[in-house]
Nucleic acid binder design. Structure first.
Lengths: 133, 133
DNA sequence: ATTCTGTGTGAGGAAAACTAACATCAATAG
DNA sequence: CTATTGATGTTAGTTTTCCTCACACAGAAT
């Protein structure tokens, strides 16, 4: 009944990684990573000495951001999509899997119109529906 | 069919963590971690700039080392135990789970006597059999 | 034609990590 | 009992990594 401590028990939200590691894992530049933080898409921890420390969740988020950018979505669009992900209506729909693509698109459109009174056109760059199956 | 990249796919042998993170994860001092490396119990990677980068496997190994030290095994004993772990005979026995405690102890004793012609007494500090159940 | 967006780059400064050396204190050996 | 060894602490001096801030720039949007 010896030690039960294991590195595999790591919480995905634990701040473990310096920016250099995250750069390698995501193939993003430090500039890009900091820019996305500036736009509040990630909130890495800070050490006492003000160094950013990233979690595995942060890495996943950055990979999603990279993906969307590569597909032509701009920052504003990504922000909206992330907000939407937190939306209880969307989450419930996704969880129950009782939505068709069309329905999900409608939910998303409503949410966008609802919260996007400003810069209404900012999402036109790409078809967002691609990002939810 | 979007991105399949995930931080959860991380190989446990990937060098991800700086020493500060490993210190927190293991509650070991930098001095201790470097000392164990000096004694070849871990082999962390190095960045281009000579910084140590640790894998999750390294963290696990360090936790094992800590465990053994706390139970009174000295470095020499830990080295032997780690060598034993790599021993095909022991591995096979463990894998097949067809060994009793007594049998495993005998295998280990033989291995110790075999490879430990020098400093035969260095392991006396603690009962090694505790470390294999 | 001008503004906005996302990213590159460089300067200057601070934090974190490195090696090497010496200090310490308990356990072991002689 | 004294001397040695083993594991760790501490400190000094250096190098690397990361930080912020500022300016540059190309392509897209207005």
């Amino acid at each position: 009944m010896s030690s039960e401590r294991r590195a595999s028990e790591l919480r995905r939200s634990m701040p473990l990684l310096p920016i250099s590691t995250v750069m390698q894992l995501t193939e993003l530049s430090a500039r890009q990573i900091r820019y996305y933080e500036e736009h509040d898409l990630i909130q890495p921890h800070r050490t006492e000495g003000n160094r950013r420390m990233f979690s595995l969740n942060d890495v996943d988020t950055l990979l999603e951001i990279k993906d969307m950018l590569e597909q032509g979505v701009n920052m504003a669009g990504i922000k909206k999509l992330f907000e939407m992900k937190k939306n209880p209506a969307v989450q419930a729909a996704k969880a129950k899997e009782e939505v068709s693509d069309a329905q999900l698109r409608r939910i998303m459109r409503e949410e966008m119109l609802n919260s996007g009174r400003h810069q209404r056109t900012s999402l036109r760059q790409a078809d967002l529906s691609r990002f939810y199956q």
